[in-house]
C-alpha cells in the first residue's frame, strides 16, 4: 500500500501527462518549434544542466528571489505586527496598504525597468514588494486573531506592551505567519520569473525568452520545468524550516 500510495500513483499521474503530451504531438503532427515531444525536452534539459550558463542563470534567479524575499518578509512582518498592535498605526497604515496591495507586482514591472534597468535590484525590489503585502496582511490578521486570554495572562504576569507584542503575540501568531511566508514564497518566485521575462540581463526568465526568440522550443519547455522544480524546492525548504522551529503542537 505504501509503495502504491507513495510512488506508483504519483508516477501514474506523471505518466498520463507524458502520454497525452506525446499523443498530442503525434496526432496533430506538431512541428518541433510548436510543441516538441517529451523526449526532446528531456534531451534539452540534459544538455542544459551540463552548461555553466544554466547554473549561473539559476543562481541569479535564486539570488534575486532570496534577497527580495528576506526583505519583504522582514518588513512585512514588522509592519503587520505594528498594525496588529497599535490602533493609531493601523488607522494610518491601512489606506496605504489597502490601496497599494491591489496594484499587483506585475503592474510595477515597467516602472522598475525605468528605475533600475535590467539589473538585479529591480527584481529584488519587485519580489520584496510582492512578498511584503502578503506578509503585512496575513501578519496583521494573525496578530488580531491571537487568543485574548494569552494577552490577559501576559499582562497579569507583568509584561508591558512591547514585551507582550514580541514574546506573546508574535510567538502565538508564528504558525500562521509561517504558512503565509510559504505562500508568499510562491508569489515571490512568480514575480522573479515574470520580471526576468520582461527585462533582465541574466536569470532563468531571460534564458527562456532567449531560447524562444531563437525558436529552441525544447529549451523553453525545459526551462519552464526547471522553474517549477526550483519553486517547489524553495517552498518545501521554507515549510521544512517552519516545522523545525514551530513543531510544538
Amino acid at each position: 500500500m505504501r509503495l502504491r500510495d507513495r510512488f506508483l500513483l504519483p508516477l501514474a499521474g506523471v505518466c498520463i501527462v507524458l502520454v497525452v503530451w506525446q499523443a498530442t504531438v503525434v496526432m496533430y503532427r506538431l512541428p518541433l518549434i510548436v510543441l516538441p515531444p517529451p523526449w526532446d525536452v528531456a534531451l534539452a534539459l540534459a544538455q542544459l544542466v551540463d552548461t555553466y550558463a544554466f547554473w549561473r542563470d539559476v543562481g541569479v534567479s535564486l539570488y534575486e528571489f532570496a534577497s527580495g524575499y528576506a526583505i519583504g518578509v522582514a518588513f512585512g512582518v514588522a509592519i503587520g505586527l505594528a498594525i496588529g498592535e497599535s490602533r493609531t498605526f493601523r488607522l494610518a497604515a491601512t489606506p496605504v496598504v489597502e490601496s497599494l496591495r491591489f496594484i499587483v507586482p506585475f503592474a510595477w514591472i515597467p516602472l522598475t525597468i525605468l528605475w533600475f534597468g535590467t539589473s538585479y535590484t529591480g527584481k529584488i525590489a519587485l519580489v520584496a514588494y510582492a512578498v511584503f503585502f502578503v506578509m503585512v496582511v496575513s501578519t496583521a490578521r494573525a496578530i488580531a486573531a491571537v487568543d485574548p486570554t494569552l494577552s490577559r495572562v501576559g499582562t497579569a504576569l507583568g509584561m508591558g506592551r512591547l514585551h507582550l507584542a514580541w514574546s506573546v503575540h508574535l510567538r502565538a501568531a508564528a504558525p500562521t505567519i509561517a504558512s503565509a511566508a510559504r505562500a508568499a514564497a510562491a508569489i515571490g518566485w512568480v514575480a522573479v520569473v515574470a520580471a526576468e521575462y520582461i527585462g533582465a540581463s541574466a536569470g532563468l526568465g531571460l534564458m527562456i525568452t532567449n531560447a524562444a526568440s531563437s525558436l529552441a522550443t525544447p529549451v523553453v519547455i525545459a526551462g519552464m520545468i526547471v522553474i517549477g522544480l526550483v519553486g517547489a524546492g524553495v517552498s518545501a525548504l521554507i515549510g521544512w524550516l517552519a516545522r523545525l522551529r514551530l513543531d510544538y503542537q
Partner: peptide
C-alpha cells in the same frame, strides 16, 4: 492600569503558552 507586580491571576481557560 498596566502590569502590576503584586498580582497573580488564573483564568477559566488556563491560557498556557503552547510553545
Amino acid at each position: 492600569v498596566g502590569p502590576n507586580r503584586h498580582i497573580g491571576m488564573a483564568f477559566q481557560q488556563p491560557g498556557l503558552f503552547p510553545w
